[in-house]
């Protein structure tokens, strides 16, 4: 079942086009990996989907409804977004940070259900022990989980993750990816994640969209997208693609010298 449909979306900052006629689809219970070099438009695409920025042309349909016709609160109940740089200027406990995910449901007082949802989510992500800690004291991996928890308490249908593993050590990378994947499966959500690591994408994404220069270069199963030829053309990198348990495994060899 199609959850999200992005049709011919174009976005430019001032005169600089960032996305040009981008179209993608995501199904229910699917993890879509968005790959591409720096500046390919991955983050911009995620921001357009959550209406953090508004594309100049094209339309985005969530459950066949145009997101520009939805209120911000309504959208916040359906889409959870985890930005690339996680920070919190002022101190806040992990509990309160995760509780902010209930903002779309809260007018002023928090209800028992809000507290219950927060506690359940903390438990699900195994970060109960952090509940009363200050978010600013956490490590990168813990912080990432807290922000995932915050997005999950929004009870969304669709998760958008902007490079969720970029600052994490290898153990936390695997932990976070596993968490995302299992939640998507268990709760029947959809997830789109912008990601740099080709191998993590190959392993955890059901489908991959490879972007280059603001357009979709290739779209399909990891094995069909992550080919030597595609990697050479998009990244300018010579790579070897092996297969490990049916998934492509990429070994980068060297950057191809500019012609």
């Amino acid at each position: 079942m199609v959850k999200l449909k992005v049709k011919d979306v174009t976005f430019s900052y001032a005169r600089e086009p960032v996305l040009e006629a981008v179209s993608i689809e995501v199904s229910t219970a699917e993890v879509l990996g968005v790959l591409g070099p720096n500046g390919a438009g991955k983050s911009t695409l995620l921001k357009c989907i959550d209406r953090i920025i508004t594309p100049q042309t094209g339309c985005i349909l969530l459950d066949d409804r145009d997101i520009t016709k939805m209120s911000r609160i309504e959208l916040a109940k359906k889409i959870g977004y985890i930005p690339q740089s996680l920070s919190h200027v002022f101190s806040a406990t992990v509990f309160d940070t995760v509780l902010m995910g209930r903002r779309p449901y809260i007018s002023w007082r928090t209800s028992e259900r809000d507290t219950e949802t927060v506690l359940e989510t903390l438990q699900m992500l195994h970060i109960e022990d952090l509940a009363m800690r200050d978010v600013n004291e956490l490590s990168g991996g813990q912080m990432q989980k807290v922000f995932i928890a915050r997005a999950l308490t929004q009870e969304p249908d669709l998760l958008l993750l902007d490079e969720p593993t970029s600052n994490l050590d290898i153990r936390h990378q695997l932990e976070v990816m596993h968490t995302i994947k299992s939640i998507v499966r268990r709760k029947g959500l959809s997830a789109i994640m912008a990601i740099h690591d080709l191998n993590l994408a190959a392993r955890y994404a059901d489908r991959i969209v490879l972007m280059n220069g603001g357009t979709i270069f290739s779209d399909g199963k990891p094995a069909s997208v992550l080919t030597c030829e595609n990697i050479r053309q998009v990244y300018g990198v010579e790579a070897e693609v092996n297969y490990n348990r049916g998934k492509p495994y990429i070994v980068p060899i060297q950057a191809i010298k500019a012609k």
Binding site: D50, R72, L75, A76, Y81, M100, G101, L160
Partner: peptide, 23 residues
């Protein structure tokens, strides 16, 4: 004081705040 919740969300950045439904 009615805006307390929204002011709280600003602490995590504009993008986070917007994704939480805050104008």
């Amino acid at each position: 004081m009615l805006k307390s919740w929204d002011l709280n969300t600003l602490s995590a950045g504009d993008e986070s705040a917007k994704s939480l439904g805050v104008n």
